[in-house]
Design a binder for these strands. Structure first.
Lengths: 234, 234
DNA sequence: CGTTATGTTGACCTCCTTCAAAGGCTGTGG
DNA sequence: CCACAGCCTTTGAAGGAGGTCAACATAACG
């Protein structure tokens, strides 16, 4: 279990001022002076691919903002299976439940090497009180989580396996060129769509044959957006 | 379309002080004086069974708290079908997206005669700023919506039709005695679980035969919680 | 270069959908 | 009060989509 590919490494105290995703994350509206006051307790972590950031049910002292990479939020089912309920990308927030004093509701695992900022509950609660812009940002993140959850219900859990997969691929993006869009494992695709690994594999294989997607070295190279969109509406 | 069974009737200005669900709704922490100041713009509406409270995509000037009854939040699919993404009961909030300046994300329809309070966006935003207790309540409602959405993914969109239906019935409650628990139409059950009306009907019929549920006059009378829980974990 | 995870494919069978028809409950008007 | 229309529910039969189990292929990895 403790291989070096499942580690969460400390990178340093966050330098929010220099953070390239400042405009995406919670503190985009703060002045430099305000920022300095809160930098101290905020840590910058790197979560290696496949590493677990936190576990469902564990006490939740902090929330996390995603600076780069990709996280999945997973729920374990009573029958041994698992279901992925959210994908978090740059600018998304994980562990907001800490603000209402609840333990983590999911297990967060990195699908790619991922950089996150860990922000203690107290810091966010304080800023939420004192800074209107942080407060606004917080409400927006929360609403965005609801929207993403809705998308999982409407787009990724409704219709045939083909339609769901098409919608998943469109959701993941893979806009033509080289941005490292993740192509999840068949197992994860299954957990995302509520289908089995085998079915996920079959659907992907069929998409390849029909030329709807192109894959090289296990990574997606390009989609046929038109064709996929058509399938998505079945 | 404009029959008298699909109407939203104005009942009066809300008397939050006397409201029997005060402790459930947003303003439970306010003093009487604070309450008086905001009572004016808050209206008390009755939504008749099957009536629409608001439509997806419409401008969202207000949010709503459910005082009694049951609302469904529906999303219309491109292929003509529809999916229910949430059920709102006493104490739940609908239309929170108004606070981040977005149009309504769903169509809200009453499954039972339902009483709601309509609260203008500005009132909530103001109170959110001035009253810590309202602010806390707001965050909690928002988190609760996320939790409910997750439940729809994990419990109502995962596994066999039987398992999903068992989980739906357990979610609906029907705790033994007479509290008017709704027993949704087969069509709504289908839209809730992502299955067809016919399958919903068949599953319910089979549950009746096995004695897992008892129905009289189209309403649920009792569940076999043990048996259903067992099915729910398949 | 063997070992192990991950992806692919086949055969079979179950579950769900689809299409169709019949039965029941409700309301309306004669 | 009864007849009839309309809607929802139930049930049937047939076909298809997806699950299951197993074998095999193909990378990834020490």
């Amino acid at each position: 279990m403790t291989t070096n590919c499942t580690s969460v490494k400390w990178v340093g105290h966050a330098k929010c001022r220099a953070c390239e995703v400042r405009n995406f994350v919670l503190f985009s509206g703060l002045s430099d002076r305000e920022l300095d006051a809160i930098l101290q307790p905020i840590d910058n972590l790197r979560v290696a691919q496949h590493a677990t950031l936190y576990d469902q049910g564990a006490e939740a002292p902090s929330l996390f903002t995603v600076r780069s990479g990709l996280l999945k939020l997973r729920v374990d089912l009573p029958n041994g299976g698992q279901r992925i309920v959210r994908l978090l990308r740059q600018g998304d927030v994980a562990g907001l439940e800490t603000l209402v004093d609840e333990p983590y509701h999911h297990t967060a695992v990195a699908l790619l090497d991922t950089d996150v900022c860990r922000i203690p509950r107290e810091v966010v609660l304080l800023l939420d009180k004192t800074s209107p812009s942080v407060h606004r940002a917080l409400l927006q993140r929360w609403q965005h989580l609801v929207d993403q959850a809705d998308h999982f219900i409407v787009a990724l859990s409704t219709g045939s396996a083909e339609a769901r997969m098409a919608r998943l691929l469109l959701t993941l993006g893979c806009h033509g060129s080289h941005p490292a869009t993740l192509f999840p494992s068949r197992e994860d695709m299954g957990a995302l769509l509520g289908i089995t690994t085998e079915t996920a594999s079959r659907v992907i294989a069929e998409f390849k044959r029909r030329g709807l997607i192109q894959i090289e070295k296990r990574e997606c190279v390009d989609y046929d957006h038109t064709g996929l969109s058509q399938l998505a509406e079945s």
